[in-house]
Design a protein around this nucleic acid. Sequence first.
DNA 1: GACTCGTGGGT
DNA 2: TACCCAAGAGT
Length: 294
Amino acid sequence: MTTAPPLPHAPVLDWFAEHARDLPWRRPEAGPWGVMVSEFMLQQTPVSRVLPVYEQWLARWPRPADLAAEPPGEAVRAWGRLGYPRRALRLHAAATAIAERHGGEVPSDHAQLLALPGVGEYTAAAVASFAYGRRHPVLDTNVRRVFARAVTGVQYPPNATTAAERALARELLPEDEARAARWAAATMELGALVCTARTPDCARCPIAAHCAWRAAGSPAHDGPPRRGQSYAGTDRQVRGKLLAVLREATGPVPQRALDAVWDEPVQRARALDGLVADGLVEPLADGTYRLPLT
DNA sequence: GACTCGTGGGT
DNA sequence: TACCCAAGAGT
């Protein structure tokens, strides 16, 4: 057991009280379902691109049961170009589970949240904390970066979340429940607005004076390269093109319409098979394809 | 642990 | 221009 290095809560909480963005899922009317929808959409996706889709989604499906009542393909279509469309499928599946097992109410219990499709450690903690004010360490990429710098004194956290990071996050969590929930949101916001990955704005940072990384002279990242994500020419790109055709179609799509998006037949077939295997695309008996009805 | 899974804006 | 990277989850 190590002792947590000093990192005062008050400056971060005060900064958050003054500078927090007015995001729709932070308003009281969003409710737990709004928080959950936002968390799914924000997985690996910037706020600016989530905003319009979120508004349309909540207007169309104001409760989990509303979404569950529709085919999963409608969720995939409404997902639009947010990326990683399996999230849409999982959100639909989560809504179905909530309607069937939880009386239509998003659970507040961390373990019950974690059992839902598409809900991992981060999202379970985020929903419990932001929607219900529960006390959980919320470790997303922003918080990990803030702690890596302010406490550990390095520019970037490890590629994968470590046990040490989890332990640190738990040690730094305020005892008071409501305060812990605000701390979670505040540290995330600090990472998103000030302690950014590329060019941190230390002049505006409320804990610059306590930052171990600054104190060490802001040393450059030292360690294994942070693996980049290639995209051009990958199956992911082909899947994206195939699904875009299906999203925009009103009826079943013939094979030739899909063949037109990529000229390499082996990769094209592999991508399409993958989409079918994932449940994102439904092949029909006559050789056409559509977004899934079941 | 290493990999896969979309998309687009910022630098 | 060519990267970098954005509130992760599942296998």
